[in-house]
Amino acid sequence: MIFIGERINTGFKAIKEAVINRDGDVIKETAIKQQKAGADYLDVNLGAVSAKPEDLCWMIEQVQDAVDLPISIDSNKVLMLKEAIPMCKKPPLVNSTTADDFKLDAILPLIAEHKASVIGLAMDESGSPKTVDARVEFAGQIFAKIMEYDITPEQLFLDPIVMPLKFMQDQAKEILGATAQFKLFSDPPCHIVCGLSNISNGTTQKKLINRTFAVMLVANGLDAVILDVNDEDLVNAILTAELALNKSIYADSYIDAFRS
């Protein structure tokens, strides 16, 4: 499983204040905490705090000063990406593009040039899909487009678009169905990722719902996830699901070994 830590996001108050006050320590601490918990990538999200590329670059700098993990740049703005991608020490993951041609044609050349990876959202600007078929169609468009730019399936992370369970209860099984189909696009397959916490938006049992749906997604082929990597029960459930699928080798101390 590729764990993408979601906590360096100005949606969280402490991070927002850190960016406004240019207080690098808060960002560094959050980065180190996620690395210790087993993150493979750290998502960096400037959000609506600023539209200046230098603010995003400053955040990335703080993270890279503290840890040597690759960055997931949480922006779909080409101007931002043009500044942020070259300053990443390791090939970053760009989070994200929709299936719209104008978006893909703007972002994919950057991905190809820097050997980066990209999250492709199975939706277009008209909105989120409602069915398995619509998701597969959008994902297929993205897949065809990466081939044109000589981007390999390993550089693509397809996102089936997770919807809140509380408000769109019928969507969960469509998301799972799409996940299973994305895996069949190629061999070797592309990665399949999602922003997990969307599933529990507005609910009173966030952690339990995240954990349960994560296991179901893993069973359907999810191999990357944007999550709160410091939620130990959630990470442990995913590690265990991967054992049950024989994707990793069991050892009595498999939980401790993950964090050592």
Partner: peptide, 8 residues
Amino acid sequence: NIGKQVNI
């Protein structure tokens, strides 16, 4: 499995 455990 024991092989992995010994390494841990």
